[in-house]
């Protein structure tokens, strides 16, 4: 793949322009090999729609969410102060997030520390781009596929966002199946609350095995997610169940980016 052009906040700002949106990439979006592809996909969508945005690039740093959920409030607040200083320095008003953990903390927990922004989830943003005609999606792009969607906890139960990601998926004419535990009844992938960064406690199975069983029961070819941690966990689960040939794990942004009509 070739390099894609992404506006960098420091450069755009130096030219005297203030972008309308900051695209918050997140650590997983920047570093996780699998999730880098999702970040690329979403940037392609933004570019195709000619959205006025920029990323922080090397100036971005962790929101502090994993530290906070692991009990390290001191480290979290140090990170938050740094992020808020950077964002306020650029006069950022609107932030688009992919990662639900970044989304939740920026939206709900930064205001009380002095970081007050309009935080937009990329699922809602993609829908907006489709509705306004800024991007065109090939509705036949996923023909003959069966798809299911896994609700990330920090998006669904946490912030009540159940419909927007499903609406993104409904751009395609496909066979959509809900898992037996879905929406507010959804089962966690096992990675939240800083579990992503440690081995699980002793038990009789991994949480991702339990959740992958729900995915497999739908008979779906694609399990769509909207969270980097869910992506890792479900990919592990599919690998563990030896079902890599039957089921692929994709982010909702990838579904759209791969089926954009120029």
């Amino acid at each position: 793949m070739t390099k894609i052009d992404v506006p960098i906040m420091a450069e755009v700002s130096a030219q005297g322009h203030q972008p309308e949106y900051l695209f918050w990439v997140g650590c997983a979006g920047a570093f996780d090999k699998r999730y880098q592809k999702v970040t690329r996909a979403f940037a392609q969508i933004l570019n195709a729609a000619k959205v006025d945005y920029a990323v922080l690039g090397t100036e971005e740093t962790c929101t502090g969410d994993p530290a906070k959920r692991a009990g390290n409030e001191m480290l979290f607040q140090m990170q938050a102060m740094q992020v808020i200083e950077t964002l306020n320095g650029y006069g950022v008003k609107k932030v688009i997030c992919i990662c639900p953990h970044c989304f939740n903390i920026l939206k709900n927990e930064y205001p009380e520390l002095g970081g007050d922004y309009e935080v937009i989830h990329y699922s809602a943003f993609i829908n907006q781009l489709v509705d306004s005609g800024q991007i065109l999606v090939n509705q036949e792009g996923l023909k003959n596929k069966r798809i299911t969607y896994h609700d990330p906890c920090y998006l669904g139960r946490g912030n009540g966002i159940y419909e927007a990601p499903r609406k993104v998926i409904s751009q395609f004419k496909i066979d959509y199946r809900e898992m037996k535990r879905a929406k507010s009844f959804s089962l966690c992938c096992g990675a939240g609350g800083a579990q992503m960064f440690k081995e699980a406690e002793k038990g009789h199975k991994e949480v991702y095995e339990e959740r992958t069983a729900d995915v497999l029961a739908t008979g779906a070819n694609i399990v769509a997610t909207a969270c980097p941690f869910c992506m890792t966990m479900l990919s592990d689960g599919i690998k563990f169940a030896n079902k890599e040939a039957e089921v692929t794990n994709m982010d909702i942004a990838e579904l759209i980016a791969q089926n954009l009509v120029d």
């Binding site: 793949m1 390099k3 894609i4 052009d5 992404v6 960098i8 990439v25 979006g29 920047a30 570093f31 090999k33 880098q36 592809k37 970040t39 690329r40 940037a43 990323v55 922080l56 690039g57 090397t58 971005e60 740093t61």
Partner: peptide
Amino acid sequence: AEDRLKWTEA
């Protein structure tokens, strides 16, 4: 942090 834009190249 220097590698935070690697995703644009990959």
